[in-house]
């Protein structure tokens, strides 16, 4: 099954189960959880079922395209079901079956892995799903987001698309995944991995000071939009802050102590956005 068929299959599967098929959010982010479709919709009482592909950036994972198993830019397939259905594990196992992985033929394990995002003030309880020892999915029941208790509780299913595709295609390098026909994942993304790795690690004399300034500007922008009671625009700049922080972190220019403070600054914004979003949705 080629890469895009994996995506199409999952979209169809979850669409058939009542999910809205959404599109990626147009901002850099470290995980599909940070898409407002998940982060903000997990807050508050309204039911919500959504599935979408999300490109993710993790600057420190850059390997200049030399490591066959690691990328600084990759894709997640994200499903959010609220409230969490009682048969969610069975639904998930069925989705593997439609991908051609029959759970009866494999050793599928739900291994404890609780999730916490210090920058988003969010945590949840769940598993990483192992397919014959390979982690292919993250499963999380959200307990808090932006410091707010999630009631009802949503469940988030995050498929690692590259991992699944590698498994299905039997290839040992991400770059050998067939995207479609004779186009490989490497052809689509390898150059980006190389260039972005140089950028992420600042190997070509990149200006870290400017990144520090950008962080401050983004933070100020977020704060002003919070004051203006516009949680969605404010959230965009929280995402900007988060990504800028991740870049600075990859550059190794943030000490451990400063690191904690930066995380606290972003979390503080995320909390305010979450609170504002909840208040304005209940009154509006």
């Amino acid at each position: 099954m080629d890469f895009q068929s994996v995506i199409l299959t999952l979209q169809n599967y979850w669409s058939d189960r009542g999910c809205l098929i959404a599109q990626p959010y147009d901002m850099e982010k470290g995980a599909g959880t940070m898409n407002p479709h998940t982060f903000l919709r997990a807050i508050g009482p309204a039911p919500w079922c959504v599935a979408y592909v999300e490109p993710c950036r993790r600057p420190t994972d850059g390997r200049y395209g030399e490591n066959p198993n690691r990328l600084q830019h990759y894709y997640q397939f994200q499903v959010l079901l609220k409230p969490s259905p009682d048969d969610v594990l069975e639904q998930y196992l069925q989705s593997l079956k439609v991908l051609g992985i029959d759970p009866a033929d494999h050793d599928i394990r739900f291994v404890e892995d609780d999730w916490e995002s210090p920058t988003l003030g969010a945590w949840g309880v769940g598993w990483e799903v192992w397919l014959d020892g390979m982690e292919v999915t993250q499963f999380t029941y959200f307990q808090q987001a932006g410091g707010i208790d999630c009631r009802p509780v949503s469940v988030e299913i995050t498929y690692g698309l590259e991992r699944l595709a590698m498994y299905l295609q039997g290839v040992n390098s991400i770059f050998d995944i067939v995207w479609r026909g004779d186009v490989t994942y490497g052809q689509v993304h390898h150059r980006n991995e190389v260039e972005q790795s140089y950028y992420n690690f600042g190997n070509k004399g990149q200006n870290n000071q400017r990144l520090f300034q950008l962080f401050q500007e983004y933070e100020a922008e977020a704060q002003e939009q919070i004051k203006a009671e516009l949680p969605l625009p404010a959230f965009d700049y929280v995402l900007k802050c988060s990504h800028t922080f991740n870049l600075l972190d990859a550059r190794g220019v943030i000490s451990v102590t400063e690191r904690t403070r930066y995380i606290a600054r972003i979390r503080n914004l995320a909390r305010q956005v979450a609170k504002l979003y909840l208040e304005s949705s209940s009154t509006g």
Partner: peptide, 8 residues
């Protein structure tokens, strides 16, 4: 060590 809620 960690308890959770689920659904409603």
């Amino acid at each position: 060590k960690r308890l959770m809620r689920w659904g409603n």
